[in-house]
Write a protein that binds this DNA or RNA. Structure first.
Lengths: 337, 337
DNA sequence: GTTAGCAATCAACAATAAAGAGTGCTAATG
DNA sequence: CATTAGCACTCTTTATTGTTGATTGCTAAC
């Protein structure tokens, strides 16, 4: 357990380091406090022994350790979400609601990235709460048509498919009719199951007469829905952080963002509420100097996903944490009644 | 006019510089040629006077100037598109054609970026050649529905719109019926015109009874089609070029790519065939050390766009130029009969 | 016209020195 | 006994200097 004075010193070191990105020395601190630099040096030595701060070399000022940041976030910041004028801006976004769900998530991430100057990621929701609303087949030429699927959430997915010559327009109409009958109001993630369940019923058999592979084509088109989508904003915000003044670091980081591995940042954070992974706690080596904060959100009872924000370990936690919390808590406003 | 030997020396300097990114000295060249370094120095002095090469400092080797690259490309490379084994890979992509147009363009750009290790951009086609195939309105709840538009090219655009309570399901059906009658087979870029032309006819008036703003909502949804799309690939390929070992350069470059100004790279290149803009010929300051090559393409008589490739001025022209030419010339294969 | 030879130029690198910031320790202080 | 002043020590940063090596331009010889 730290004494009050140690906590104060730790807090000041962290906040000063967040501000300047330079190691903080005892003299700097003694100017802010009523103690001499010698006293502070003694305290700093203790804080270092306890693992909260580190030196970059024998005679340098101190820098917060990963553990130090954790203590700061969990013990010194507290849970109080102070009112923040950025909250208004977020509310404003959600009030302007004649935009599609996807677009809204995208914009929310953009906003968060702009407010914080860090990189933001939203994962999901995939099609998980969505239900089939309507299936439509629109002929293009003799042998090609567009398969359309609309969900109750207003999402549209389309896929161009080939149609065997043997199938007449009326046949196609019948096929679509059957699909609509079977799948109307069926949750997206149960489509495959449902079709396989019905595979021996009369209706499905009727379809298979026309074309053996149509079920597969169909299922293929549905996979797009169920893929959990990622929204990435402010990818190169990080370049302006002093910790990324080395080109190799930049390359490493951007290469990571360009891979399809982004979801790895969020691994094992489901059902955990807000998580803060600092520095090497992130398994990804390109992230060794970064903090990744994740927080789950819900759009309605079923649709859920994760918001993540990626910045340097030297992140403005005080500002960022309330912001992501607030945003995640209010994401459900995307659907207004 | 340059002598044969001057041309040879210029060619070697450029190719050596492209290979190594280091200034080329007379001794290096004399090892490749039958002349002494002194002779080559004399020739180099002349080439410098003529503006084809430059020194980085008084006693450095020579580096090609923008003008030098131009001479190399236009006089020394010639028009002969030598067969290139990459051509096969391109053909392969186009043969695998059960993908949508958008996806095909995206993949073509990805491929080009991978083959060359430079950044690639495709502009357009917008919806220009496309015609309205079908318009559909799918109700979600009482007051909301999805407006769907499908083109003959298989492109689908959707927009969620609000519907006044006063409008019954049958009314909506009637509205859509009228729209389909009016707009079937209408080229996308003439939709606005057509609707305004028909504004006083009985059919449109019938629609307006239901809802005054529906036409605007409709036109709004169509603008998405006509926007010329951009496809960007290999954004951070450039980071691995030695000319971008400075973080500030990297920032500048990526910031430019992130703006929506990419189209500026292609300004005034329409109808010009292949253009090569080297270094400061690009008006964009972030591009002062880059070469931008553009070449127009056509998908069918009407749909056209531009392919661009962005690399360092020290670009592998010999490899790149035939490649973009070939790709652009064969883009039309995306639609096979 | 070509080339050998040579002084001059300049970047790149390493070695050295000086300045400045910071630490840890010790001894004095209240 | 906590606090502080004082001081030697450490290490980074910056500037300075010298050295090396690549390259040029010029001149004179072939």
């Amino acid at each position: 357990m730290l004494t009050k004075r140690q906590e104060l010193i730790l807090k000041l070191i962290i906040e000063e380091y967040i501000r300047t990105a330079e190691p903080v020395g005892s003299r700097t601190l003694s100017k802010m406090l009523e103690f001499s630099s010698a006293t502070i040096r003694n305290e700093m030595a203790d804080l270092e022994d306890l693992g909260f701060i580190e030196k970059t070399h024998t005679s340098s000022g101190r820098v917060p350790s990963d553990q130090g940041y954790h203590y700061y976030i969990e013990q010194l910041l507290g849970d109080n979400i102070a009112y923040n004028k950025s909250f208004n801006i977020i509310d404003e976004l959600f009030n302007n609601s004649d935009i599609k769900r996807e677009e809204a998530i995208k914009q929310a991430m953009n906003l968060l990235s702009q407010l914080t100057n860090y990189t933001t990621i939203a994962l999901g929701p995939g099609g998980y709460g969505a239900k089939v609303k309507k299936i439509e087949l629109i002929p293009l030429q003799k042998d090609a048509c567009i398969l359309l699927m609309v969900t109750n959430l207003g999402h549209v997915e389309s896929k161009q498919i080939e149609v065997p010559e043997s199938l007449s327009t009326d046949d196609m109409k019948r096929v679509i009719e059957i699909f609509n009958e079977i799948l109307y109001d069926c949750p997206i993630n149960q489509v495959s199951e449902k079709l396989h369940y019905e595979i021996n019923t009369q209706r499905i058999k009727e379809i298979l007469i026309y074309n053996e592979t149509i079920i597969d084509t169909f299922l293929d088109a549905f996979t797009k829905f169920t893929q959990s989508k990622t929204y990435l904003s402010g990818k190169n915000k990080m370049l302006y952080q002093p910790e990324f003044s080395d080109v190799n670091r930049v390359r490493e980081l951007l290469a990571f963002f360009d891979q399809n591995d982004i979801f790895r940042l969020v691994e094992n954070t489901e059902r955990q509420g807000l998580t803060v992974r600092i520095g090497k706690e992130n398994q990804i080596s390109a992230m060794r100097d970064c903090t990744v904060i994740t927080v789950p959100y819900e759009l309605n009872g079923k649709d859920s996903g994760t918001i993540a924000i990626v910045g340097p370990t030297r992140m403005e936690y005080q500002k960022v944490i309330p912001l992501v919390k607030y945003l995640a808590a209010h994401m459900s406003k995307i659907y207004k009644e």
